[in-house]
Design a protein around this nucleic acid. Structure first.
Lengths: 218, 218
DNA sequence: CCACGGAAGTTGACGCCGTCAACATCGAGG
DNA sequence: CCTCGATGTTGACGGCGTCAACTTCCGTGG
């Protein structure tokens, strides 16, 4: 008695090893960032031999890739949540702008509350750039979060809060800003040198700058 | 005959091993990014045993730290060069703005022409955040490049091209934007999914947005 | 002049990692 | 019931960073 899930050593076979490995790997990434996702340690935590993982993943990279996708998904959730929390009342332009701003806040909330997962979501190893095989590599720019961001910019444009000629490339510009701040704050020197109050201040300042840059009317 | 430098196997002792290891390590970082800086490989290239490096560096991390500093220095050079190339004539406000913009171009020029070194410059391992020992970790925010950037913002302010209340936190906002674009373009999904023409376009767009965000007058 | 002490480099070993080949165990379907 | 494929184990390999012990060389003081 006791399902294999609750009694990890119930039998020779695990019963749900793939999911158990994923959970363990995600927890490792959460606590220690991308470098902490070590196949042997993942297996150890699940109470299984290292090579057992090869029945469910072709290699360690594949496991890591799935952890990355999971992290990306949580980032998307954080953004959706923040955007969804904006009250849909008042001037449509104000709402559109507020929603755009909220998406940035949701991005940064995730980055700073789950730095390990955030770094994992954007970790990219190898310098190998084989010819036309880049297609299979799903990433943020294909993710729900990016689509959301794009849609929010369309809304701002439709509400007349952005000069039409500025719309092109705006996703990348806005994303760059928020992402850069997140990277510098979580793994870069910002988080290590600034007090929490300073961090909060420059965070608002940074969002102010990008919002002003995106919603200029000239 | 033949100095130890030109004849690497002239004698048992190398003569200039520390510099030789540094050069080799920097070259590795240049070609393969931070992950490619592997102590044993560095030593192998110099034609020396792996443990020989321990006579000059306390650990592999220390070697890597120096490579990082070298990369940071080259980034600073790239920025200085771009800023220095701006002609110092015409309206002082225009010059200040042009110099600020040039610093961003210099930053991105380096990131895209030397992606391995750029990634190395900002690579940060371990999630260990020991108490008050963060002081010794020199990084970009202490570097010449950051000081330059700060000075350029002061000039823009002094030339009346920036609202005074926007000056605080402007370094971080501008740096975040440029850094984010560089990261997404070199190791992130941008560089892998966009054509060179698109890259050039979004690059200009991104710089436009941050310049507009920083130099707003309201 | 030489011998000697420490600086600089070597070898061999340890424990960690990812991965492979060969073997053991289990449960579902003939 | 018995077999066979899916699942998990063991043992090994090469590569990594690092340590302890050993060797080679060079500059210096007697």
């Amino acid at each position: 008695m006791g399902s294999p899930k609750t009694a990890p050593r119930a039998s020779y076979h695990h019963g749900d090893l793939r999911n158990a490995l994923m959970d363990s790997a995600v927890e490792l990434a959460r606590a220690g960032g991308p470098e902490a996702v070590v196949l042997r340690e993942v297996a150890r935590r699940v109470g299984v031999s290292a090579t057992a993982a090869y029945r469910h993943f072709s290699a360690a990279d594949e496991l890591f890739g799935e952890v990355k996708q999971a992290a990306l998904a949580r980032l998307a959730e954080s953004i959706e949540r923040a955007v969804g929390a904006v009250p849909d009342e008042g001037d449509p332009g104000d709402v559109a702008v507020a929603r755009l701003r909220a998406s940035a806040e949701g991005y940064l909330d995730f980055a700073f509350s789950e730095p390990g997962l955030f770094q994992t979501a954007f970790h990219h190893d190898d310098h190998k750039v084989d010819p036309a095989d880049a297609a299979d590599d799903m990433s943020f720019s294909d993710s729900a979060a990016f689509q959301t961001f794009s849609r929010l910019l369309d809304e701002v444009l439709a509400a007349g809060r952005m000069a039409p000629h500025c719309r092109a490339g705006a996703e990348v510009a806005g994303w760059s800003m928020v992402h850069g701040f997140a990277v510098l704050g979580t793994e870069g020197p910002l988080g290590r040198h600034l007090s929490p109050q300073m961090m909060a201040f420059v965070r608002q300042r940074t969002i102010d700058v990008v919002m002003r840059g995106l919603t200029a009317q000239d």
